[in-house]
């Protein structure tokens, strides 16, 4: 039975259902959240971008971090696929290359949670300086 028998039950039900609404809710104000864009051109898909994207969903959910993960076309670094762009609120986006699923957690931990880009994976090193607004 789905019948709600108390106000507490309704609250619990809402908390449970809210997770299913998070992607849509976050889409209403992406600029306030970390945004992750996964390059999903043919080159990216061939290099495993789909798995990378799934890993982002899984790890963000695991850590309970809100973020907006979207896919985009080829970002022009076909030699370093999968490519991923991470944009923190109020900051310039940072472009990463060779983002295989095993480095996803590191990017989330360092860049998204602590604001420190993972420099060894950044594709355009010269612009890193202005990427981070301290």
């Amino acid at each position: 039975m789905t019948k709600v028998k108390s106000i507490e039950e309704l609250t619990a039900m809402r908390e449970r259902l809210r997770a299913g609404m998070a992607v849509r809710e976050n889409g209403n104000h992406p600029e306030e959240l970390p945004q992750v864009r996964v390059g999903m051109g043919e080159c990216g898909v061939a290099a495993g971008a789909k798995d990378t994207m799934r890993e982002f969903f899984a790890k963000l959910a695991e850590r309970g971090v809100s973020g907006v993960v979207t896919q985009t076309g080829c970002m022009g670094h076909c030699d370093a696929e999968p490519t991923v762009e991470v944009e923190m609120p109020g900051c310039e986006p940072v472009m990463y290359g060779n983002v295989t699923p095993d480095v996803v957690d590191e990017i989330i931990d360092s860049h998204i949670c602590h604001g420190e880009p993972v420099r060894r994976l950044v594709l355009t090193e010269s612009v890193v300086g202005r990427n981070i607004k301290s």
């Binding site: 309704l10 609250t11 039900m13 809402r14 259902l17 299913g20 609404m21």
Partner: peptide, 10 residues
């Protein structure tokens, strides 16, 4: 359930 997830009936 979609309505409840958006604070419906709260």
């Amino acid at each position: 359930e979609e309505y409840i997830a958006r604070d419906g009936y709260a």
